[in-house]
């Protein structure tokens, strides 16, 4: 049963998230354009771009970078399937960590000085958001009684009502995870603030197309983290979660367009400060309720 569910989720996520992620990117570009007073490209432009990248002639420095990226993509799809088949949240978080590592190694193996700087920044990005993401998973566990994503369906009230601060923490680091300015240090869609092309400096053609597709999958998965907070045992949950995710994504686009990239020191200290703040308050609350003081 669970294996069947996983296989269905694998195909569902593999195909569904590909289209959904591409569409999200298209929506992002249109809204961004409107915010800047432009009309913007057609909705399907991201697909055209990736199609064109896939058709390009192969250029490579060594055979490794495309291999690492390919492996990272597979792992992102796997973890998405685990997530949407109701699997273990912490395992998903850790698997995404493996994908990030492969992405970093892909940048290093080219020995481009620009890609290496991008890789250093990607490492610092991981360091800034990882505590919040791990702790989100743990608080999810202590609030819902299980690490399994499927447990949300059995809740009487959405998690947001139980651990609202953790949701705020997630929102803060989500900007980094979705590669939005001001925290898009390792590589970004905004050419004006980029150091060559960051992590992807030496990636082109098919490899770059895979990076783009991986980003789509990741966006859908991370918005799934957001949806976790809005799901409970009611059919209304679907609607509420969809609206919440749409609003969050819109908010991220606004943030993306309103802030210039910051230095890594700022990203690290702000992310950690927010994480420390929301988690400590949540811990105090948890300890108080645990010991029955409230």
């Amino acid at each position: 049963m669970t294996i069947l569910l996983f296989v269905i989720a694998l195909f569902g996520f593999g195909i569904g998230a590909l289209f959904l992620g591409g569409l999200l990117a298209g929506v992002d570009r249109i809204i961004t354009a409107r915010l800047q007073g432009r009309v913007g490209p057609p909705l399907l432009q991201p697909f055209y771009d990736v199609g064109k990248l896939l058709a390009k002639e192969d250029r490579w420095l060594n055979g490794f970078e495309s291999f690492y990226i390919f492996l990272a993509l597979i792992i992102v799809i796997l973890s998405g399937a685990f997530f949407f088949s109701g699997g273990n949240l912490l395992m998903v978080v850790f698997l995404i960590g493996l994908a990030s590592l492969l992405f970093i190694v892909a940048a290093y193996c080219t020995r481009s000085p620009f890609a290496e700087i991008g890789a250093q920044r990607e490492i610092i990005q991981v360091m800034s958001y990882e505590p919040m993401i791990i702790l989100m998973a743990v608080f999810y566990y202590s609030a819902s009684g299980s690490f399994d994503v499927a447990a949300t369906v059995g809740l009487d009230l959405p998690l947001l009502t139980q651990i609202p601060l953790i949701f705020i923490g997630l929102l803060f680091v989500l900007t980094t995870k979705l590669r939005k300015s001001p925290f898009d240090l390792s590589f970004s869609h905004h050419a004006h603030q980029e150091l060559v092309k960051g992590v992807t400096t030496e990636m082109s053609g098919k490899t770059l197309a895979l990076v783009e597709i991986m980003h789509w999958y990741e966006s859908v998965l991370f918005l799934g983290y957001v949806a976790l907070f809005f799901v409970w045992g009611s059919l209304w949950a679907v609607l509420v979660a969809l609206v919440a995710v749409a609003l969050v994504y819109f908010l991220e686009i606004i943030i993306d367009n309103s802030f210039a990239r910051v230095k890594w020191q700022a990203m690290l200290s702000w992310s950690w400060l927010v994480t420390l703040l929301v988690v400590s308050v949540s811990v105090v609350v948890a300890v108080i309720t645990n010991t029955g003081l409230l």
Binding site: G97, V126, P131, I134, L276
Partner: peptide, 13 residues
């Protein structure tokens, strides 16, 4: 939890 979360992130680096 806080110790483990932050410690693991730094380990990654």
């Amino acid at each position: 939890l806080i110790v483990l979360g932050f410690g693991s992130a730094m380990t990654f680096v």
